Simulated scan of single mutants.
Amino acid sequence: MKKEVINIRVSSTFKADLGILADLKDISISDLGREALNMYFNTTDFGEPEIRDTIEEKPNKDSDELLQSLAFTELIFWIYDKRLNPEMNEIDEYYDQHVALIDEMNNHSRFTSEILIEFNKIKSELKGECDGYDHRSGIFLFSQKNNPNSFNYDKLSYFMYGIRYTENQVKDLFIK
Score class of each variant (00 low, 15 high):
D103L: 03
I117K: 11
F119P: 05
D92W: 01
E118W: 03
F77A: 11
I117S: 10
E125G: 07
F119W: 06
N120S: 11
S69K: 04
T73K: 14
E104M: 02
N120A: 04
S124V: 04
D64S: 14
H108V: 00
L101F: 03
L84F: 12
H108Y: 12
L67V: 14
E114P: 00
I91F: 09
N89H: 06
I117Y: 04
I55A: 08
E90Q: 10
N106C: 05
E114D: 15
D62Y: 11
L84P: 00
R110P: 00
K82E: 05
N120M: 08
N60F: 10
S109Q: 07
F72L: 08
E118Y: 02
R110G: 06
S69V: 05
R83F: 12
N107V: 01
S109N: 05
M88S: 05
T112A: 06
Q97Y: 01
D103C: 02
E87T: 08
K61W: 12
F77N: 12
R83N: 04
I102C: 05
D81V: 02
E125S: 08
L84K: 14
T73W: 06
E118I: 04
Y80V: 01
E65K: 15
I122V: 15
I79M: 09
H98L: 02
I91Q: 13
Y80K: 07
N89A: 02
K61N: 13
F72C: 01
E57F: 09
T112K: 05
E125F: 07
K121S: 10
S124K: 14
E74F: 06
S69Y: 08
K123N: 11
L75C: 04
N85T: 05
N60W: 11
F119T: 13
E125R: 08
L67K: 06
D62I: 12
D92K: 13
L75S: 07
K58Q: 13
E65F: 12
H98N: 10
N89G: 08
D81L: 08
I79L: 15
S69N: 03
S69G: 09
D92H: 07
I102V: 07
M88C: 09
M105C: 07
E114H: 02
K121C: 07
S63G: 15
I55Y: 13
N120V: 02
L101D: 03
K82F: 01
D103V: 01
E125L: 06
V99I: 15
I55D: 06
E56D: 15
I102G: 01
I79S: 01
I115A: 09
I115C: 01
L67F: 13
I55K: 14
N85Q: 10
E87V: 02
D64N: 14
E65T: 07
L116W: 00
N89C: 02
H98V: 00
D62K: 15
L75Q: 07
W78P: 00
T112Y: 02
D62V: 11
M88Y: 00
M88Q: 09
F77E: 09
L66G: 04
L67N: 11
E114T: 12
L70Q: 14
P86R: 09
T112W: 00
L70S: 14
N89R: 11
V99T: 06
D92N: 10
Q68A: 13
